[in-house]
Design a protein around this nucleic acid. Structure first.
Length: 425
RNA sequence: GUGAGCGUAGCUCAGCUUGGUAGAGCGCCAGACUGUGGAUCUGGACGUCGCGGGUUCGAAUCCCGUCGCUCACCCCA
């Protein structure tokens, strides 16, 4: 009467990353770290768990992220904790808390790891998703914006993602944006009744979002709305002009997209997004911008900042679609042994090759050579090393090139150099 | 939170309209080939048809419910 226990599944919106996909992720992360370090970014690791107030204050209590997407729970000491929905707030918190401003230089920090948002999963959108991001803290110089965008374009180039487009906008600062929002409301009020239900709501809650509406019927109205770029204060306008002219100087193509309104309250001035086809509806590969007021919101000294976050899940989707990276891992050698007397020397050979850094596999069951070679073939091993009684007697092992199908006799102590010579090609 | 599509072998899927013994390809195992993989041929194993209920002599198939997955809306990375 034993009943089969029900199986436990991964939580909705979370998933296991398995080989060979993990190999692809490792390659992506390696490229990212390489490019980030070329621009002298250093890694920071912050907790996944933070006080809820951190996000409520930085991201904005009225945003979708905070109002309905956070994983929040009360700890046993009644503290409200949240699984981070993004990491910029944590980095700025650490910057303030650990006194990094006292080091008297611009801080360039990067991070990577899981974030959590309780959204309905779909292609490229998960409840546990991964971001690779970076922040530049301590300067509002527009060259930071331009140089960081330059770095991102280099990264995408190195990952073989040619057809990505950079969308660029400025959302102004705490001085000019409220003026523009007021103007927008004034313009929208008379035509409100002709707009979609969502927009009617947005006019009240967040008029900037109206610009991002995709309803066909609303487009004529949206097209006639004033552009924020025409209503920036002189400082913001100057900043934006420097960013765009620096991008031109670097030959980086971009599209000014006035409807690019980011969903986090802390953004000021430059905002951007890089989108990619092949990603489905969630086509934003990465996004970011400037947040000159965030430090103060979190109780720190005024500290301008600029940052971005790459959706690693989406990056992996795009790289996969582009077939630009080889994800397969394959053993350098498979050791096929025959007869109990060959097992000990075979294990010894495996050990020494592995100590030399080769990726080596060996089976433990005494099965037929045919089966061992079949296993080597299935693992896509580059070479099979055959050792049976004959080889042990003669002191010459058979090294078989699994692709060419040819084999040579090699003395055991020369196998390392033999493999090294052929694998580096 | 809303909507749509889909759950059948390890994988990809057919079968469902018109109810009647659960299928194919790939993969896996074995042999042909006792120390040489990939190719070919032959044979083999494998399913509570997501789950629960209903209709029926009989349900993978029709109906209801439920869970899950996927995509889209929304929003964002």
């Amino acid at each position: 009467m034993s009943q089969k226990p029900s199986t436990i599944r991964a939580v909705k919106g979370t998933r296991d990353l398995l080989p060979p996909e993990t190999a692809l992720w490792q390659r992506i992360e390696r490229e990212c770290r390489h490019v980030l370090s070329a621009y002298n970014f250093e890694e920071i690791r912050t907790p996944v768990l933070e006080q809820t107030a951190l996000f409520a204050r930085s991201v904005g209590a009225e945003t979708d992220i905070v109002s309905k997407e956070m994983y929040t729970f009360e700890d046993r000491d009644h503290q409200l904790l949240t699984l981070r929905p993004e990491a910029t707030a944590s980095v700025v918190r650490a910057y303030i808390e650990r006194g990094l401003s006292n080091e008297g230089r611009i801080q360039k920090l990067y991070y990577l790891g899981p974030m959590f948002r309780r959204e309905r999963p779909q292609k490229g959108r998960y409840r546990q998703f991964y971001q690779i991001g970076a922040e530049v803290l301590g300067s509002d110089h527009p060259l930071i914006d331009a140089e960081t965008l330059e770095m991102l374009m280099l990264l995408l180039e190195r990952l073989g993602l040619k057809q990505s487009s950079l969308l660029l906008n400025s959302v102004g600062c705490s001085r000019c944006r409220p003026e523009y929002v007021k103007l927008l409301r004034r313009e929208l009020e008379p035509v409100k009744s002709r707009m979609c239900a969502d927009c009617q709501r947005r006019i009240e809650t967040n008029p900037l979002r109206v610009l991002d509406c995709k309803v066909e019927a609303d487009q004529p109205i949206i097209g006639r709305l004033p552009s924020i770029l025409d209503h920036l204060c002189p400082e913001c306008r100057q900043h934006f002009e420097t960013v765009t002219s620096e991008l031109k100087r670097r030959g980086i193509p971009y599209e000014i997209t006035v409807r690019l309104v980011r969903g986090l309250d802390y953004y000021t001035r430059t905002t951007f997004e890089i989108i990619h086809g092949e990603l489905g509806a969630q086509n934003a590969l990465l996004g970011g911008g400037r947040y000159d007021g965030l430090s103060e919101i979190l109780g720190g000294a005024p500290t301008p900042g600029f940052g971005f976050a790459i959706g690693e899940d989406r990056l992996a989707l795009a790289v996969e679609a582009a077939h630009s990276l080889e994800a397969q891992t394959r053993p350098d050698a498979y050791i096929a042994w025959m007869g109990e007397s060959a097992l000990a020397p075979a294990l010894e050979l495996a050990r020494s090759l592995r100590r030399e850094g080769f990726r080596v596999e060996i089976g433990f069951e005494p099965v037929k050579l045919k089966k061992m070679l079949g296993q080597a073939s299935r693992l896509r091993a580059r070479f099979a090393i055959i050792m049976g009684e004959e080889e042990l007697a003669s002191g010459r092992l058979q090294v078989k090139d699994m692709e060419a199908g040819q084999q040579e006799q090699v003395a055991p102590e020369l196998i390392g150099p033999y493999l090294w010579e052929r694998l580096k090609a």
